[in-house]
């Protein structure tokens, strides 16, 4: 597996104390991405699933104390779904659970299906609520996300949805109404447990400069924390979902 980086204390990437494995490579080109350094599928260090398993196992005392586990993020972790499945078997033998943090914009092949079936929780982005804006700001195919969410619902895999709120793009209540519309059937059927909003921040800007990649949002400010909190309250009220961590 090509691992971009490891963050051993990622308490917010799921439940309990999490060790986040950021896998290299992403097919999306989200305008607001704060990790453009993970786009290149070769930008990282190669591990065998066994090596990575040994590394993760070292955090078991913390997982046991707080009911945590591993979170595969990225990049797009499901690009390496086959490897996640192999590693997942080793983790399952030790009762260490994993969460997948994905764009959901992936081809639903057998490896991807197996990888998400093995997950304790899937955190799936709903980056934009319609095919047009989705394409414009991420370069991806929106229909894949809906198919992915349908699959999670059909398989009864625990799911949280997530959206990054970017000032001037999707930070108005009426814009969020369209996200709510897409999510409502999943929430009502119990397929999506929580809907979490993340605030756009500028802490990843330096990476664009370093990599010589054009930053489309270089003049966009970070979303104020109070605004994020208000919007989170707004979607919670509309969807009747429990309040997730405000990041």
């Amino acid at each position: 597996m090509i691992v971009h980086s490891i963050e051993s204390l990622a308490a917010l990437e799921g439940e309990g104390l999490r060790c986040a494995i950021f896998l290299a490579g992403c097919p999306m080109r989200c305008a607001y991405c704060h990790n453009p350094d993970t786009w290149d599928p070769r930008a990282g260090r190669e591990y065998t699933p066994e090596d990575l398993f040994r590394k993760i196992k070292r955090y078991e005392p913390y997982f046991r104390a707080a009911g945590g586990g591993v979170t595969f993020s990225g990049g797009e972790p499901l690009l390496q779904a086959g490897e996640i499945v192999r590693l997942g078997r080793l983790l399952a033998d030790e009762n260490i659970s994993y969460t997948i943090d994905t764009s959901g914009c992936v081809e639903l092949d057998e490896d991807v299906k197996a990888a998400v079936r093995g997950a304790e929780l899937v955190i799936c982005d709903l980056k934009f609520p319609d095919a047009g804006t989705f394409k414009e700001y991420t370069g991806g195919d929106f229909s894949r996300v809906l198919k992915f969410l349908d699959f999670l619902a059909a398989e009864k895999i625990r799911t949280w949805a997530r959206t990054v709120i970017v000032p001037g793009i999707n930070d108005k209540e009426e814009e969020l109404d369209r996200y709510i519309e897409v999510l409502r059937p999943y929430v009502d059927s119990g397929a999506v447990e929580k809907y979490q909003l993340l605030g756009f921040h500028t802490m990843g800007f330096f990476k664009y400069e370093k990599l010589g990649i054009k930053n489309r949002l270089e003049n966009t400010p970070a979303l104020p924390a109070e605004r994020l909190s208000d919007l989170q309250g707004y979607v919670n009220d509309r969807l009747k979902t429990p309040s997730p961590a405000i990041l």
């Binding site: 308490a11 309990g16 913390y62 997982f63 046991r64 104390a65 961590a245 405000i246």
Partner: peptide, 20 residues
């Protein structure tokens, strides 16, 4: 912010770090 979004959550996670 690394530990959580409110005091109760942060306290719980900090206690877990100490336990681990």
């Amino acid at each position: 912010g690394t530990l959580g979004s409110n005091t109760a959550e942060r306290a719980e996670k900090l206690a877990a770090i100490l336990d681990g």
